[in-house]
C-alpha cells in the first residue's frame, strides 16, 4: 500500500532518528533500513534524506563522522547525540499520544 507523502512528512525525522539510535548508519543504509523495518511500506525518496539528516545535525540531534566501511569504502556515518536521544524519547511519547488519539477517533467512526 502506497502511503501519501503528507502522512509521511511529519514522521520521517523521528523514524530516521530511531534508526540512527540503534546503530551508527550512513545514508544509503538508513533508506534501506527504513524500507525493511517498515515492512516495505515506507519508500523514501532517497535524495530527500540528506536535507533531513543535515537539519538534524544542525540541530545537534545527530553528529557525523567519516569511517571506512566493512566494504573498505570511506563513508559518512551518522550517530545520535545525547540531546538526540532525549529528543527522540520525547517525540516517541508525543507520537504515541497522537496515534492513540487518532485510533480512538477512527475506531469510534
Amino acid at each position: 500500500m502506497r502511503i501519501r507523502k503528507e502522512l509521511l512528512k511529519g514522521s520521517t525525522a523521528i523514524m530516521i532518528l530511531k534508526i540512527i539510535s540503534k546503530e551508527d548508519a550512513y545514508g544509503y543504509q538508513i533508506t534501506q533500513e527504513l524500507y525493511a523495518d517498515s515492512g516495505e511500506t515506507f519508500k523514501l525518496n532517497e535524495g530527500t534524506l540528506y536535507p533531513i539528516l543535515h537539519t538534524l545535525e544542525k540541530d545537534g540531534l545527530i553528529k557525523s563522522y567519516s569511517k571506512i566501511s566493512e566494504q573498505g569504502r570511506l563513508r559518512k556515518y551518522y550517530s545520535i547525540t545525547p540531546l538526540g536521544r532525549v529528543n527522540l524519547a520525547a517525540q516517541i511519547e508525543e507520537w504515541r499520544v497522537f496515534s492513540r488519539a487518532v485510533d480512538a477517533i477512527l475506531k469510534e467512526n
Partner: peptide
Amino acid sequence: SIKSEFISH
C-alpha cells in the same frame, strides 16, 4: 563534502 556523500550513496 555533500557531493561526496551523494556520490557514495
